[in-house]
Design a protein around this nucleic acid. Structure first.
Length: 470
RNA sequence: GGCCCCUUCGUCUAGCGGUUUAGGACAUCAGGUUCUCAUCCUGAAGAUCGCGGGUUCGAAUCCCGCAGGGGUCACCA
């Protein structure tokens, strides 16, 4: 049998920001498509006019693009397909599988409340009218269910089954003329020849209804794959913006790498069975397998994301990193040339977890930080020295450095010599010089730092630090 | 309440009847790398595999109960 190329889709409703769970669903659908050389389609489920949020559609598009999840078709808006849904609805009416809902909204609500009071699930079909009126489009159109035991296979969840109680006469077309999700997605998936329906867990309970619809419409059932939810950091609740969860674009803005985000999100519930922890996009496309997606919800752990991102940053060639980081330099850096900034970045690369940290990590390379004697006085070993000896050591350092050519090797040699000359431990001497030349709580190695800083700046800082200590 | 799904270190997970004294990673802690921060290396601590029954020579792995968590029961998706 010839294998047909997969056609997958991501079908969010444009009602808010795209959370990590949604991104993961999109990513997996995209991976399936790319792996099989098929197509990935973005479809916006905008059949609820009241809940649509201005700009949400664009936000979804931007988020996917920011991660490199490109789509071959779309974004397609369901609101443009109303005629097609009507056509399919007519088929169901003609075959006696759809009928007009004769009840008023308050009447249905009363049924529902009664069911609640009786602690029973609400089933509209218990009130199915015997002689429904002809549907004129002014009332909801309902599916006429044929409840029965149903079993099906889910690529993630495995073999599933549900009884008749899970099937009901749900609404196909609302009284405003728009289809419900339940109906529209079936029609669209069929029209678009979608092969894999990959979606969140919230649709699992209604899957028997969808299967009944496939049957009634004479459609073949696509491969179904249900993704468990991604949970918030502290609770077991579904991840939402209220948990302080940022959306992808926030992470991109903070200088997280798309490929790190992708690797992290993919491994939230999926792994290839080896001990590999970080994956490139290429590897993901090669190795991804729906059947290896976990069935339980995973917590979003920002610490781990931080580590993944840092690992991508460290493994990147310096020139590439330099290009990506342009927008994140501290303001004062604009007065400095590429070579200088690149040298600074070279020293910072292994310390950088995300780009927004760059100013905090590098500002002392670009401007003189204010003298902060606490850095010396709060250091146990330096404090013991006393001011006079601190000054003496720095003066010796000054003299020695004046004769250096400021190559890393020579600086290191001079510093080592200074160690012998003064009889001090590096913990004392190097700390002192480091603080007096940077006034930063942390910096890269001393010789490297001084080399990048250069002779002029180093000596100038040493001089002003000495006068502050006197 | 009915139905459905889930349950291995704090977190992400490996595991698909015996090679397991349950492995890896993040986080944590300790030590090392001529100073700080970070990287890197080494090590430590951390899971009676939700609980209780079975099946089996043998179970995290199979079966049955129970509990906990989640989802769903909309003219929302």
């Amino acid at each position: 049998m010839p294998k047909t190329a997969p056609r997958t889709r991501f079908a969010p409703s444009p009602t808010g920001y795209l959370h990590v769970g949604g991104i993961r669903t999109a990513l997996f659908a995209w991976l399936v498509a790319r792996q099989g050389g098929g197509q990935f389609i973005l479809r916006l489920e905008d059949t609820d006019q009241a809940r649509e949020v201005e700009g949400a559609g664009q936000h979804i598009v931007d988020s996917l693009k920011a991660l490199g999840i490109d789509f071959d078709e779309g974004p397609i808006r369901q609101s443009a397909n109303l005629a097609i849904y009507k056509k399919y609805a007519q088929k169901l009416i003609d075959s006696g599988r759809a009928y007009a809902d004769p009840y008023t909204a308050p009447e249905v609500q009363a049924f529902r409340e009664q069911a609640q009071k009786d602690k029973k699930p609400f089933l509209y079909r218990n009130h199915r009218p015997t002689n429904p009126p002809v549907w004129d489009g002014s009332t909801p159109l309902r599916f006429k269910a044929d409840p029965q035991d149903r079993s099906w296979h889910d690529a993630v969840m495995g073999d599933l089954q549900a009884g008749p109680e899970a099937q009901d006469d749900f609404i196909l077309i609302k009284s405003d003329g728009y289809p419900t999700y339940n109906f529209a997605h079936i029609v669209d998936d069929a029209e678009m020849k979608i092969t894999h329906v990959i979606r969140g867990q919230e649709f699992l309970a209604s899957t028997p209804n969808y299967i009944a619809l496939y049957e009634a419409l004479g459609l073949s059932q696509p491969i179904l794959a249900t993704m468990p939810h991604i949970l918030g950091p502290d609770g077991n609740k579904k991840l939402s913006k209220r948990d302080g969860a940022k959306d992808v674009l926030d992470y991109i803005r903070d200088g997280y790498l798309p490929e790190a985000l992708v690797s992290f999100i993919a491994t939230l519930g999926w792994n290839d069975g080896t001990e590999q922890e970080v994956f490139t996009v290429k590897e993901l496309i090669q190795k991804f397998d729906l059947s290896r997606v976990g069935r339980s919800g995973a917590r979003f752990d920002e610490q781990r994301l931080l580590w993944v991102n840092g690992s991508f940053i460290r493994n990147m060639p310096l020139d590439e990193l330099y290009q990506k980081v342009t927008a994140f330099w501290p303001a004062e850096a604009k007065d400095h040339g590429d070579n200088y900034k690149k040298a600074v970045l070279g020293l910072t690369q292994e310390r950088l977890k995300y780009f927004a940290e760059l100013p905090a990590l590098t500002s002392f390379f670009f401007n003189d930080l204010p003298v902060n004697l606490e850095l010396i006085d709060n250091n146990k070993q330096l404090k013991k020295l006393g001011r006079a000896q601190q000054i003496e050591l720095l003066q010796k350092a000054q003299a020695s450095l004046e004769s250096s050519d400021f190559s890393v090797d020579d600086l290191q040699a001079k510093l080592n010599h200074l160690l012998e000359e003064t009889g001090q431990k590096p913990g004392i001497l190097f700390s002192l010089i480091r603080i007096a030349t940077t006034w930063a709580p942390a910096s890269p190695g001393l010789a490297d730092t001084l080399h990048v800083l250069g002779k002029e700046a180093t000596l100038a800082r040493l001089k002003s630090s000495l006068s502050a200590l006197l």
